[in-house]
Simulated assay, not measured.
Amino acid sequence: MEIPKRLEQALIKLYNAFHNDELNPECCSACAVGNILDNRDSWKHLTNGHGSLQLSYVGRVHQNLGRKFNGYTPLELLLIERVFLEACGFTVPLCHYNPKPQNPTDKERLFNGLYAVVSQLCELEGIANVMDYARVFEYESDNPVYKFDVIYE
């Protein structure tokens, strides 16, 4: 399966952020979209609320002009961020009076957020979720479709 360049780049950035403890749902430069956009927070001007799907004036201008940021339109970026925040347990849009999880940077919580983001990124590309392990167990005529070399030590 051929993976589109923007997806590949996003996956690498998110993978590195997760494993380097540089993923933070409450920080616009360290959240899912912040990492996809090279740890820049300028994307926050595309909306008036972190986690909102409503484009701001600036966001609408960029969307209507067909602008893309690391391959993603403003609406796609807002959708990616919303999916991430919700999967991490936040009520969106983020604001001081909405409840938030007790430990927003818990590894399991962040993994759940990333799983949802990867699923959304694959959906945007029109491909199967690259994190779906169910395919590993596919079989035809009682034989596995995929073979793996197992090394015992």
Rank of each mutant, 00 (worst) to 15 (best):
E140Q: 15
P144N: 14
N35R: 10
N103T: 03
Q9S: 11
L11A: 10
H45D: 15
C28D: 13
P4F: 00
V61T: 12
N39T: 04
A30W: 09
F90Y: 15
D38H: 13
T47G: 09
L37F: 02
N64Y: 13
N48K: 00
Y133A: 12
L14K: 09
V33I: 02
M1N: 07
L121N: 09
E76G: 05
L65S: 10
L79H: 09
D41G: 12
Y115H: 12
L121I: 05
P74L: 07
H45Q: 14
A32Q: 05
P104G: 04
N70D: 12
R135V: 00
L110M: 03
R40L: 05
R82N: 14
A17M: 10
A116F: 08
Q54Y: 03
C28A: 13
E8I: 00
I127K: 03
I127F: 00
L110G: 05
L124G: 03
G113M: 02
E22L: 03
N39V: 03
Y15S: 14
Q54G: 00
V145I: 14
A30M: 11
Y139Q: 14
A87R: 02
A17F: 14
V130Q: 09
R6S: 09
Y146I: 03
R60G: 01
L37S: 07
E26Q: 13
L11H: 05
L46H: 12
Q9G: 01
N20V: 01
C31V: 08
F84Y: 15
S29Y: 08
R135K: 14
N16G: 00
I36P: 09
V58Q: 12
D21N: 12
E123G: 08
R6V: 01
P104Q: 07
G51S: 05
M131G: 14
L11S: 09
Y152Q: 11
V145R: 05
D38E: 12
V118Q: 05
L37Q: 06
D132N: 13
A134G: 06
F18A: 10
A134I: 07
G71I: 01
L23C: 06
Y133S: 11
Q63L: 01
L46F: 15
N70T: 01
G49N: 09
Y115G: 00
S119R: 15
Y115I: 00
G59L: 06
V92F: 02
R60D: 14
K147F: 04
L55G: 07
N143H: 15
K13Y: 05
E76Y: 11
S42E: 13
T91R: 07
D149L: 07
V33M: 14
K44Y: 08
K5R: 13
L53H: 08
P74F: 06
E26A: 08
I80D: 05
D38C: 05
D142R: 09
S42M: 03
N129S: 07
V118E: 09
